[in-house]
Nucleic acid binder design. Structure first.
Lengths: 218, 218
DNA sequence: CAGAAAATTTCAGATCCTGCAATGTTTTAG
DNA sequence: CTAAAACATTGCAGGATCTGAAATTTTCTG
């Protein structure tokens, strides 16, 4: 919780305008589809000029992505704070778990957003867990964390990219299930498979209750 | 090799125009950067109208991505052809290895392309091995292959998405190394780590020649 | 060669996005 | 409180992207 506290009226209004633009964009695109919503529509719904819209977002699509601009830096900070004894993949799971919780807290907003992404596949690339920016930032943090041995063998890039992909898959699964299971649980499931080397699931035994074995908490 | 054979003059010209547009786009953007190249520039360099450019590519960026439109279907076919006894991840490694070889055969073109992608990060999402289209197609093939047990637990989505991400990482590493190691070898390395569960690399032993243990060939 | 089929072109137009100058509002300093 | 600085919003001009439709040219087929 670090929103709209300790801020003057001006910055509060800025945040509010930004959020309003995001909401309007999301709502309109969910109703009519991406192609049938113009920037003017979105700006009009919030009663600002189109020019103002572009002062907040570089493109129409960016208004749909949401998420703080500070999210990347935030993840990075959390990651370097994890003790370096923790394996990289596990460390990534921990910080992404935080993100998952925060997403779950805005359930409706995110389900709407993910639905929009499903309906408009051209947006999907942008969702690769926030895009190249997040990935760069996290990769740097990963490399920094385990600065000991490896250098340019690209392990940090691989682990980070894979982890963010897994996160995206978990989100899409969560969305497809209409947000019924906890996103954090789906994330754990996905990461369990990752650290197990992505083995094929065994043909289901005659009877079983819940699908995945939860990893024993440390 | 299935280009420009068994085709009338008309289709041959079409392929040639398409390829020429790709080459021109790549060359110009490498020289001046994405922002300083207009569609008119690209079309002009090939001596066609801008409208014709848009008959071939929906956006300027698409001309930079290259790759046959048929590539996705091709991968899909190869994947279902792999005996179903082969684990999914291994099967994906095999078909992506084919793609890697084919990329290596057009070394210069691809190094140029990947360089352009590095210089223009906004393009990167598109590179996720051809984008959402490939991913959908491959996911379907994976699900079909192991239709036996699992159904909607999303394993196919996860394995496919992760494999394509790994492929992308291998390509970027290949590009960063100026195409010196074989892309197929980098791919093997990356997939080895995947099936090992992405363990952190051990702090380097006192002496060692080459970095990674190559998996024993079957 | 004549007609069918298809690719290219021209043209008009909607939308996206940017720079710049003007205007209005909030904050800060005195 | 007031003046000035700082900043957000706006209108406007303009370049670029992309689409539909009709006209024109090229290629294929019989």
């Amino acid at each position: 919780m670090d929103s709209s506290d300790e801020l003057g009226r001006r910055d509060r209004k800025k945040l509010e305008t930004r959020a309003a633009l995001e909401r309007a964009a999301l709502r309109l695109v969910a109703e009519r589809g991406l192609a049938d919503v113009t920037v003017e529509d979105i700006a009009g719904a919030v009663d600002v000029s189109s020019r103002t819209f572009f002062n907040y977002f570089p493109t129409k699509e960016d208004a749909l992505i949401g998420g703080d601009p500070a999210a990347a830096a935030d993840l990075r900070r959390k990651l370097v704070a994890v003790p370096s004894a923790v394996p990289t993949l596990e460390a990534l799971r921990l910080v992404l778990r935080d993100a998952a919780v925060s997403i779950q807290e805005q359930r409706e907003q995110w389900l709407l957003r993910l639905g929009v992404f499903e309906q408009n596949p051209s947006l999907l690339p942008r969702l690769v867990a926030g895009g190249a920016e997040t990935e760069r930032s996290l990769t740097a943090a990963v490399a920094e964390r385990s600065s000991a041995g490896s250098a340019a063998d690209g392990h940090a890039e691989l682990v980070t990219a894979v982890a963010l992909t897994a996160f995206r898959v978990a989100m899409m699964r969560w969305s497809a299930a209409r947000g019924e299971p906890l996103l954090a649980d789906l994330l754990d499931d996905v990461f369990s498979r990752l650290s197990a080397g992505l083995p094929d699931p065994r043909p289901p035994a005659p009877s079983a209750g819940l699908p995945g074995p939860r990893p024993p908490a440390p």
